[in-house]
Design a protein around this nucleic acid. Structure first.
Lengths: 344, 344
DNA sequence: CGCGTGTGGGAAAGCGCTTACCAAGGAGTG
DNA sequence: CACTCCTTGGTAAGCGCTTTCCCACACGCG
């Protein structure tokens, strides 16, 4: 069983069916050309008998195009990315595409290398869900690479901010955070702390900005030493909360973490320090990943329809190209839960 | 920019560098043949100038083999699968493989269709992480398909039970559940309920079996009406708990859900019904997905090193083939947390 | 100085497909 | 019934690579 029986080829099928290669090819895929039903059935029967599966690579080189979508994410085990991936895979499969995936581990050097490597697959579509950063110098090289990819017929879709000159699924991070701030103020909160990602991370920056602007509308501010910058992960959130606790945050009423996994980490840290989330301190996050409605207290957050985001990305990619790059804006909606009870 | 400038080919590079196709090919990939340094540099410079990326499909057809790993999961947004996927992707990338992914949505018909389609990619490795079921008739067709794949040189690795005649990363579901039961009895628990998946799901069945056997060792049993069968998801767990509550479980001390996401759902249902997890009722799960240490109360569970499971799967696939299928057993370890406080 | 040997570039034959292009037969038309 | 047009099977030329030969050349040796 080990040995090299090679897969049956179209040639084998044609011989088995007693027809030419061309006829075999035409009967097994939806070619424009019509083929006699009797022939087609013969070919299909032969294919089934032999267990023939068309070699996708060979098809790709013959046709000069593939049916693959390449997806680049930051970290597939992060629910944010895995939900987006679920949407992408679902939509891609519906259109008969296969998806290949690569993870950047949130490193933009690595992202560049991956994009470069992925181009070798000649995918029809390249979707970047890795969080964009601003100041990186590799950003320029990335744009060059992506532009080259588009100019050879590929489609690029980026998810998040419209920083790059490509089709974009736009997440309203700023607006969502701003509305969240407004609602929290409405609930009676006045003194805040913020756990943010590194400043160059666009997603994080926009959320912080929106939150602060939302507060500013009510003449509220967050002192600089109550805004800490950490990793965009659960452990980052934990560490951020620890840092805040060291600064002394006895009078802080609510901690806003720029994403849910960070909020979850922060809640653990706060709890360990004796500040009970939802009771002696409120916590809010961002994303509405599936688990946060089941934690205790359930987390107040800003919902992004992550699965839809993934679906939109492939819809965008499969739609006709437009000049200058289309944007699909995705709404974010504030969800108040028990982690931020109204202050009497 | 829209239009069809096609990607530069090796031919273009060769012309640009003033060498033959063969020399260009040899200098750009680690071929066995040596090529003069001066030539190689010329070729590399030309490739860089043109922005050449080798066409992986063409390479695949020329070489007759690819560098891809195909991964089949049940649901990528489930942390169980996404953690495994993270391991697979990490290990695959380290070995220069790209991974393509497909999701079965836990439907074994669909799994069969996917495997069939994935074979078209001629991947070197096919990893099945979708939960195996027993009685399905499509199981046979699956085995046939996978066997055919192996006989044409591919490698198959399945994760979970050794039900299929292929290399396997074996999760000790039975043993983990059994040890969990023992520990819980040690903590003073005597009256249990179980929320299980559908009976045909092997993973679920083994965990229930192990748990019951663990109890039996201490002469404890779980009455049949205290074992409910539901979906293997968060909502399934919720529904399962609701069902148990309807049966009346006032005297039940601990609910064991066969996986963590179900346990989390069950906790929410119990809490809504006024049974506070970790206080008026204990809950235990299985898997140790990342979030459960951060929920309240932190969940007692059986840890599976999910990332490692993914890594092992690709190691197994890349190791020399052995007769009859290798198994890599992965240990599961009981983690007691606050959701199962010791009963005085 | 003749010969064997080794080195490394190039020509060309594939790899498994798709798809012009060609040709043969049947249908339609006056 | 002669002619054109349409249909549809087959032939063969690619697609972008790798790899097997072949060959020219340089070198070492007796």
């Amino acid at each position: 069983m080990n040995a090299g029986v090679r897969s049956p080829t179209l040639h084998d099928v044609a011989r088995e069916a007693g027809v030419s290669l061309a006829t075999a090819s035409r009967s097994l895929n939806g070619s424009a050309r019509k083929v006699n039903d009797a022939y087609r059935e013969r070919v299909q029967a032969a294919a089934a008998r032999l267990g023939y599966t068309p070699n996708l690579s060979a098809q790709a080189v013959a046709k000069g195009s593939t049916m693959t979508v390449a997806l680049v994410v930051g970290d597939i085990s992060d629910p944010y990315f895995s939900s987006i991936a679920a949407g992408v895979i679902g939509a891609a499969e519906e259109s008969g595409f296969i998806v290949t995936m690569a993870v950047t581990a949130r490193d933009s050097e690595r992202e560049l290398a991956l994009v470069r490597a992925l181009r070798g697959q000649r995918p029809r579509v390249l979707i970047l869900a890795g969080s964009r950063t601003s100041d990186e110098p590799s950003q320029q090289a990335l744009v060059a690479e992506l532009t080259a990819f588009e100019s050879t017929g590929g489609r690029v879709v980026v998810i998040s901010q419209h920083e790059l000159p490509f089709d974009t699924v736009l997440l309203d991070n700023y607006g969502g955070a701003r509305r969240l701030a407004a609602e929290l103020v409405g609930l009676g909160y006045r003194r805040f702390a913020v756990i943010s990602g590194v400043p160059s991370l666009l997603t994080s920056r926009d959320r912080v900005l929106g939150f602060l602007d939302g507060l500013a509308e009510h003449d509220l501010t967050v002192p600089a030493d109550r805004i800490v910058h950490t990793e965009f992960t659960r452990d980052g959130g934990f560490a951020g909360a620890v840092e805040l606790l060291e600064h002394g945050i006895d009078d802080v009423e609510l901690v806003f973490a720029v994403n849910d996994v960070m909020a979850v980490g922060a809640m653990s840290a706060l709890r360990e320090a004796g500040r009970i989330p939802g009771e002696s301190i409120a916590v809010a996050g961002f994303d509405d990943i599936p688990t946060v409605r089941d934690i205790t207290p359930a987390l107040t957050t800003v919902q992004i329809p992550l699965i839809d985001v993934g679906r939109h990305a492939v819809e965008l990619a499969l739609a006709p190209r437009t000049a200058g790059g289309t944007e699909i804006p995705v709404e974010t909606t504030v969800v108040i839960r028990e982690s931020t009870p109204a202050r009497k």
